[in-house]
Design a protein around this nucleic acid. Structure first.
Lengths: 120, 120
DNA sequence: GCTCTATCTTGACGCCCGTCGATGCAGGCT
DNA sequence: AGCCTGCATCGACGGGCGTCAAGATAGAGC
């Protein structure tokens, strides 16, 4: 249940995962954690979910909005949201009847930094 | 039919995929192409392969070097390299007996740009 | 030519993943 | 109370993916 991308202060994480991927060989432990996040993005539906949430008014969207954008059942969308949440890419908050999903910017930024070339 | 973003049937790569993911909703065609690349990175072995190739002397490595870094059979490594090559993340060149693999920097940079926040 | 080495391909196996219908649960309404 | 709506979970099905052993292919050298 713990997000792979540490929310705050996971020391091992900052050492292994915050350097660019191609600077030095990544260990298998770090590779497994990183791969989970990339795998979460490795589905067209989840990619569009992230995009929809990020582009939505106020930076958040409720499940009903998201479900309406696909020709998939609501349990399927809920499953994909769970995968993204467990990868640390999004988080959710319940307000009254609706549950709102929001991106975790630091998670996306860290993945971007991982793919960026070391310096040049 | 749906006026998402993209007209189908054109290589959506170059145009569609260069906008940050969270700026505006991504169409299904672009999402499928993007998801293929993310899925290619969504395996610990392939992630370590990319890391090993990028960190290797001269920016390239032959299969024998890569195979030695894992406790997997050579056909399995060859399979993973094929997945990465079909995703456009690496390319290969045969020199004599050995096949050398090299990263495609623009591919990694584009994925990084996709994950970067629009403005801030 | 033949042989050896390095690499790719094929076929098969098991498991994981995406999807669904059905059900459960929480909160708002009357 | 009762009901209805939004969302999560469960169980199951089918297809895809990672892995392997075995065979095929390419190049170097004799």
């Amino acid at each position: 249940m713990l997000p792979v991308i540490a929310a705050e202060g996971s020391p091992a994480d900052t050492e292994e995962c915050s350097i660019p991927l191609v600077r030095e060989p990544v260990g298998d432990a770090a590779a497994s954690g990183l791969a989970q996040v990339f795998r979460a993005l490795g589905d067209p539906v989840r990619l569009r979910l992230v995009s929809l949430i990020g582009a939505h008014q106020g930076g958040e969207a409720c499940v009903c909005d998201l479900t309406a954008a696909f020709s998939l059942t609501q349990p399927t969308i809920s499953h994909h949201l769970k995968v993204l949440r467990e990868a640390g890419l999004i988080d959710s908050e319940r307000r009254g009847t609706w549950v709102y999903y929001r991106l975790v910017p630091t998670a996306l930024e860290r993945m971007a930094a991982m793919l960026s070339p070391p310096a040049s």
